[in-house]
Design a protein around this nucleic acid. Structure first.
Lengths: 343, 343
DNA sequence: CTGAAAGCGCTAACAT
DNA sequence: ATGTTAGCGCTTTCAG
């Protein structure tokens, strides 16, 4: 079934059919009706590629993400998907767990015309590709990563770590440690600096032996394994435990809790924890954490992209989300908070 | 940059360029080199839609899933994604949380030519669409759902529930309950019947008051909330607790554990649990569970689809996966199993 | 307001 | 082995 078929049946030209299908105003109601009726009867579906070729537009976006290795992305993707569905765009997903896979994808799969724009999540954009995107005028929006030449959506790690630390301080904790992800990751760096700075501002000593920088590199240290190993190793060293820990992600906190449990240590009785992200399962563990508005980030990323497509020469924007504190019971308060927390 | 540009530069016809780009054997090495060089210099990328239009093939598949509401799908999708990436296919993802959304998608978004095939997950295929797929010869593979006219990949719920029940029985438990999802869902029905049948086979009484069929309809009852509410309601009734429960999904077990904990009941000390799925977080809760080979299911679904595309007239196949028992500590054994279980 | 015709970029059949 | 040409199905001038 093509527009030729419906043109023949409706006794009009293909141009008219196309106009009707695209809601052009310059068609008589009478002709329009005739065409619409036939189209419906023939159960006509436009051919996406033919449209794309003629329109020079695909109505689809591509999301390149460290695929499913982290619950964080799943929730951001949810925001992306729903926003896109609402405007009738399709979503192509490409997994790239490492920088190498990213480059591989960028090298091979970036066929022209396939997508109207791409969303890059949490992966560093290599400079040589930045140039390609610019040169080919291929819209790119970065989420949880940054490059001066493109729009980006980020989380304010500094402010988030500050709030988390101050919350711990406000509860009276004074010996506070930090279980961090790999220092090679920018968010890990920012969260650590801010933690130290905040402690300093409040005249509380930061003790180096209480700073655990993960050596497990899975997911840049943002993994359950990294949290588990970090804490297990710490306990093995036999140092006296601080009274609280700021942990760089929920998933690490979950691993850390497992390590603590094996040593018969309880949260929050023996040690308080405030972590980062508020992934969906954080509530199952009653984690007090800094919530990142993941769904909203996905939604905003799409909106930014749509704007960028509309107006390629608009000034580049970089917007920051500030995490908010979600209090559950891992710091010793609101033990039953989770009960009503089914969002 | 089109093949015309590179044809001109290489002083050949566009046909030759196309041949080179498609690795046709009938081109002199000399000419081939010339074309390849120019293509590389011009950083040529084929236009996906033009190719698709001419080839009548998109090299992309669409996955329609109850989007991200269940960790189960995420893991299946991972298998889908990686398998597809390996063969150079693109993956379009469509979320359809309800049957209504499914129909909506099928009605509006199924533009012709867009995808070479679609993978439908866990959603019932309405008959009127079955006809459309058949009539349009649109390849369709069903995962975790069934229709006689299409290839499908399923899980053997009967065998899985049997194994789970027998495991409980082998441990010596005799008063065993089942916390089930909504009975409207087929997997829930199958798991319950098999549970009852197995109990019967072993001459152990099935007591109706120990069968909890979730009334919470989120995700057909396969949700944390359903598990939580089911158990909370059960405890409220003050019936003496059975010694063990077979739970129809991990996620429900997690909710159930939360409800138990609020009543100072421990797993496995006060009650043993064996559940179903082995989603990634199951290990965080030390759940003994029936593992569904989710990644493998995704992978197989893709392979089936690729075969179907190659050979549209092959006989329809329906293959079943049998879940395997993963022992952790929720039934009282192997308390530390999780330590080495970082898969 | 509508029909005819020229592309969009590529593949594949047809000549040579 | 290579060039030429006819589509693929749709949008969009350009005439009328």
């Amino acid at each position: 079934m093509t527009i030729y078929d419906i043109a023949r049946e409706a006794k009009v030209g293909i141009g008219t059919v196309s106009r009707v299908l695209n809601n052009s105003p310059k068609v008589t109601d009478e002709t329009r009706d005739r065409v619409v009726t036939v189209a419906k009867r023939l159960n006509y579906q436009p051919h996406a590629f033919a449209q794309g070729l003629a329109r020079k537009r695909s109505n689809t976006l591509c999301a390149v993400i460290p695929f499913f290795t982290n619950y964080f992305f799943i929730q951001v993707l949810q925001g992306v998907q729903e926003t896109l569905a609402a405007v009738g765009y399709d979503l192509i997903i490409h997994g790239a767990n490492t920088q190498a896979q990213l480059e591989d994808y960028l090298d091979h799969s970036m066929r022209k015309g396939r997508v109207d724009g791409t969303l890059l999540f949490s992966l560093k954009l290599p400079d040589r590709f930045a140039e390609v995107f610019i040169e080919k005028k291929n819209p790119l929006v970065l989420v949880d990563t940054f490059h001066p030449s493109f729009d980006s959506i980020r989380v304010d790690n500094t402010e988030g770590a500050k709030k988390a630390t101050e919350y711990l301080l406000s509860l009276g904790y004074r010996t506070i440690g930090m279980l961090n992800a790999n220092l090679s990751s920018v968010p890990a760096q920012e969260r650590l600096s801010s933690f130290k700075a905040t402690m300093c501002t409040h005249n509380v000593e930061v003790r180096d032996e209480y700073i655990i920088n993960s050596s497990n590199t899975k997911n840049d240290g943002f993994s359950r394994e990294a949290g588990y190993e970090g804490m297990a190793e710490f306990l093995r060293r036999g140092i006296k435990l601080p009274s609280a820990f700021f942990v760089s992600s929920d998933i690490q906190a979950i691993g850390m809790i497992a390590a603590l449990r094996e040593n018969n240590l309880q949260v929050p009785n023996d040690i308080a924890i405030v972590s980062f992200d508020d992934i969906e399962i954080a509530k199952y563990f009653n984690l007090t954490t800094m919530r990142q508005p993941m769904f909203d980030m996905g939604e905003l990323a799409v909106k930014k992209m749509l704007e960028r497509i509309e107006n390629p020469s608009a000034p580049i924007s970089s917007i920051n989300f500030t995490p908010t504190l979600v209090v559950r019971s891992s710091c010793g308060a609101n033990k039953n908070y989770v009960l009503n927390d089914n969002r």
